[in-house]
Design a protein around this nucleic acid. Sequence first.
RNA 1: GUCCCCGUCGUCUAGCCAGGCCUAGGACACCGGCCUUUCACGCCGGCGACGCGGGUUCGAAUCCCGCCGGGGACGCCA
Length: 487
Amino acid sequence: MSVRVRFAPSPTGFMHVGNARTALFNYLFAKHNRGKFILRIEDTDLERHSEEAVKVIYEALKWMGIKWDEGPDVGGNYGPYRQSERREIYKEHIEKLKEKGLVYECFCTTEELEKMRKEQLERGEPPRYTGKCRNLTEEEKEKLRKEGRKPVLRFKVPKDRIIKFKDLVKGEIEISSNQLGGDFVIVRSNGMPVYNFVVVVDDALMEISHVIRGEDHISNTPKQILLYEALGFKVPQFAHLPMILGSDRSKLSKRHGATSVKEFKEKGYLPEAFVNFLALLGWYPKDGKEVLSMEELIERFEIKDVNSAPAVFDTTKLNWLNQVYIRQYPLNKLTELTIPYLKKAGLNPENFPREWLEKVIGVVREYFTTLSDAPKYAELFLRDDIEIEPEALKFLQEEPKRVEVIKLFYEKLKGLNGEIEQESFKALVKEVGKELKAKGKNLFMPIRIGITGKTSGVELPILAELLGKERLIKRLERSLSQLKEIA
RNA sequence: GUCCCCGUCGUCUAGCCAGGCCUAGGACACCGGCCUUUCACGCCGGCGACGCGGGUUCGAAUCCCGCCGGGGACGCCA
């Protein structure tokens, strides 16, 4: 049997990390089994659907490196891939159920149903539809219609049936049909069929072999199995992924902070790190290797290794992974991705030769965890109008000799023949130290401050070489004049 | 309330199905040391968990029962 899985998000305008993980696991499962990964847009609820929102889904998946074999934009033999375009197909199958006498019209209004639910809850009963309209006569229906009521279509849930299915993650699950909340709606009063119905029709017609989705769908599964059977379809295999929780162990939501894929992209996480992190949320490779590329993930991914317990979404590990990926990323690509962050911080990376910029990124990448940290470190290289930080100033003022160190270093640098590089820089510092009898912190820190205005940063010789003599001199002059003003 | 799912270090997890190799392993975080005349990186080390109670067994994180705790679902949302 060939493997066909689908990711079927509803276009809400943002891609939640939970959805992203569902997509990823579907993708990994499909590719591991040389199967197809299908994208289907669940937009039956018309009011909520918009073109823009569909684009958000495409972009998130693309960013993550997930490619779909069939979908609304790329086509395929099982289309259309948008539920809003499949109405005729649904109609056909609804007719089938009508003919079999498995559905009936229900005229209860939303308010009536809500009231009923509330009362049931107050009595401590589970909320359920009582089947009030199940045996309406034609005359009664006519009367209700005349009142202006538009009926919904409900599916007749059989009594006392135990519905069983083998979940690939959770194991055997069984539930009584009496527990389903009564006859459920499959067509709204406006004629649009409801999720539980269309998902069955679509999955069956698209020949989906494995339905892999979030755990919150477990309670829908028995209803859907009933529909598969009623429609004469083969029931697919199910796999319900554990929930992703917030730090307080409740379902992850916006109040827990960043939860959309876009936010992670904007914060400067690399897609490879993000995907790697998501994969580790509820799944673990047999060989224990944790830093894995998409190819390596595909190679190792087994649905049976998915943990059945929910996972807390904690980004500390993501941060670590991002650091790892930043350090091993191709330098030209990393530079490309970093430039927008530098610009946003008011720096002008374009004023410098690309080759030189890459060298700079190559040095500072060791220091940052996300791309948005880049300006903080790259600033040292990209702007010369530095100001001495208060902390640094305090350090210099504690000991007059410290300022002398800067002055002498400046003089010596000016007298230097040719361009400066790491070795000559070190030699120069050494000379200054000898002449002024300064060493350790008293020697290096003033020079650092003279050049950068800060008390910490990248290694001085490297910084000096990349900056070059001319810029070093300019910076030292600037710092010196700042010190003079204060004195 | 009812049903369903889940419960191993702070977090992600390995081990559980096929009980002894588990004085419970790894990763991240945290703490300490080394390296670096700063910070970071790197290296070394440390802290730290089987929810509780019964039972079965020579032996239980692993099997059984109960309890407790957490989560989810109960929509003309998906």
